[in-house]
Structure formats: structure tokens, C-alpha cells
Design a protein around this nucleic acid. Sequence first.
DNA 1: TGTACATCAGTGAACGCGCGTTCACTGATGTAC
DNA 2: TGTACATCAGTGAACGCGCGTTCACTGATGTAC
Lengths: 190, 190
Amino acid sequence: LKVTKEKAAEHHEAIILAASRSFRENGFDGVGVIEVMNLAGLTHGAFYGHFQSKAALAAEACRFSFEERLSVWPAGLTLAGFVSGYLSAKHRDQPSHGCPMAAFASSVGHQPAIVKREYARGLESHVRHVTAQFEALGHGKAQARKNATVLLSTLVGGIVMARSVSHTDRRLSDTIISDMKRSIFSQYGL
Amino acid sequence: LKVTKEKAAEHHEAIILAASRSFRENGFDGVGVIEVMNLAGLTHGAFYGHFQSKAALAAEACRFSFEERLSVWPAGLTLAGFVSGYLSAKHRDQPSHGCPMAAFASSVGHQPAIVKREYARGLESHVRHVTAQFEALGHGKAQARKNATVLLSTLVGGIVMARSVSHTDRRLSDTIISDMKRSIFSQYGL
DNA sequence: TGTACATCAGTGAACGCGCGTTCACTGATGTAC
DNA sequence: TGTACATCAGTGAACGCGCGTTCACTGATGTAC
């Protein structure tokens, strides 16, 4: 049954949102088109009226995830606050609302080119954003960029490692998080 | 056709080796039982005479990957040498022979419990091994363990991030590797 | 040592299932008069 | 503004494919005599 253009646009956004959440939670291959559509409150048949393929949705979901993450960045958030929030049990246990780099980094390599491209774009914009934070702290342009690259890679490593054992060795997972946080704080003097 | 017990044992090892390589290269879900068996020089029908399930093979392949990695650790390898080899274009481009943590970290969470358990065991033994390296350098037990945890997480983050964009933005990928290496070297005074 | 036979590693066809995708159909929308 | 009709977002059955898994069968192994 046909619906309002506004309703259809809302549906489109709902699909992307649902995909963004469940792809981050279960990986691109861990959730199917049917499940995403049901999460969006629709049936699977309507999917190909909105997207050309699952890969196209994955790319959109990837783009949305990065965009959402940067858009909810609080105005006065310090680097210390950012690191603390990133390396937290909450972030580890809620990948669906978390960093898309940590969620997609190691599986995006096996995804279609369209997904890889959108991921690389998001990564670049994320690096730029953190670079600006370091520049605001007085670092030179080149050094700020290096710091941003290293900090983000380090954070991703910490959360990815913590998640990899969070259901098997909770204590080790907690240790990774706290040790990484302490190390980063001392390294950057936060 | 029946084969010698020795041949059968060789086949068993060949399957694990092939799985270890292709799982690290393509992920647990990126390669099927048929492909693994063909890589091992057999047909898929023989698989369930060797393993109870694909998950059981994944667990064995995981265990083997960690074991192989530690067993080929050169006797006199310094931490600086280890870091240099880890954060290299060669390691980035050859995950099939590389670190199982970097290869499996973010997908092991979606694998059956038996795989998760074997991964956690390998991770723990890897941390212990690097801890011993730091102890040999004169660090106290607790500090050595912390250093090992942080170093490994940082290395994994670097290689995972570099791999995530290696087919899309080679320059950024190279930058991540070199910036991470420089940062780690200066942090640990290598 | 030689022979007959039970064992069993490996083969390849087949099964069931879930997935991404397609399509004929429905009925509310929104446009032309 | 009201009516008739073309449009098209959404539905749900169906398709093809690849995957993990099963199984009847083959024929070399290795054992019992």
C-alpha cells in the first residue's frame, strides 16, 4: 500500500538507523535484510524500493554511523573526557551506539568497494575532527594530525581487544580498558 | 578410499593449517568448509571424519595460529624488532601469516563459545610471552604485564586500522603504520 | 610369510536451511479534469 | 471543491544460490588366521 512521501522518507531513515545499529552490533554479515527491515517496522519486500542492494545499505549505514558519532560530539568535550568515554565498559558493551571504526575496522576489508569507500571517508573525517582538537590545544598542524592518527588507532585497539574477550574473560577485558586509559592519559598528559 | 594412519594424521594437520591461513586472510565467515578442504588437497566429504563442526575447526585453527606465532618467535628478537615487524607493510598485507589477534579480534565476538574460549587462551599466552620480554628488560612483574597488555592492544589497533583502509587509501594506511611505530618507539624508548 | 576379511579415510551426490533478491499484487496517494 | 484514475510504497510468496552437514558407497589398510 502506498504511503505519504513524508512517511516513505521516514521509512528510509528508519532503515538506515536500524542498519547502523545492528551492523555495528553484529557485523555486516551478522544481520540480514529481513531483520533490518523488521527492526525498521517494515517487511523485507519494500527494501529494494529504498536501496539497490544490501551493500548499498551497508555503505549508507557506515556513512550514517560516522556522521552520527561526530554530530553528537558535545561542544565542550575535552580530550580526557573523550578518551574516558571511549575506553569505558559502557562503550565496550554497547557497540550499536559506539565508534564505527571499532565496529567495522576489521571486517570492512572483506566488504564491497562501495562500503570500503564510505568507511575510508568517515575515517578521514574522524581523524580531521580529532586533529582539530589537538590544534585547539596548541599543537602544530602536522603534529596534531599525527597525534590524532595515533590516538584513534590506539583507542580502537583498546576497545577491539577488550571486546574480543569481554564474554570470555571479563577481568582481562576490564584490565585492558583501564591499562589503556592510564597509558593514554600519561602519554598525552591528560 | 582408506589411507595410512600417518597420511590421515597429515591430512588432519593440513586441514588445520589451511584453515589457519584462510581464516586469518578472509575471516571465519569468509571461507567455507569446501574451500578449506580443497586447500588441504581433499574433498569436503572427508571433513566430518576429522572435525565435529566448522566451529570446532575454527577453534583449532585459532589455537594453531597463536601457537605458530609464538613458536616462530626468533630467540634473540628485541622488542624493537618485534614492533618493527608487526607494524610493517608486509604484516599488513599478509594477514594469513600474521597475528591472530589482529585477524580475529573483532569477529571472534560473533563466533561460537568454543572459538571464543580458544581465542582468549591464545591471547592470554601471548600477553604472558610479551610480559616475559619486559621482565627480561628489568621491569617489575606487574608493570611488565601492564606494558605487554598496552603494547599488544596498541599494535593491534595500528595494524587493524592500517588494514581497514589499505585498499582504499594506501597513503593513509602507510601513515598509520609509520606514525604508530614512531609513537611506540618513543613511548618505550626503543 | 601368505591369504581373507573387517575396518574406515576419503568420495561425491544430496539435503535443508537461510540468505539476498525478484515480482505479481494491493490499496492509499496525489494528480488531472 | 469533487471525482476518476494513474502512480507507486509496501506486501508476502517465491526463486536461486551457497553454505554446513549427511550418507551410501569405494577401495586401500591392517589385522586375524
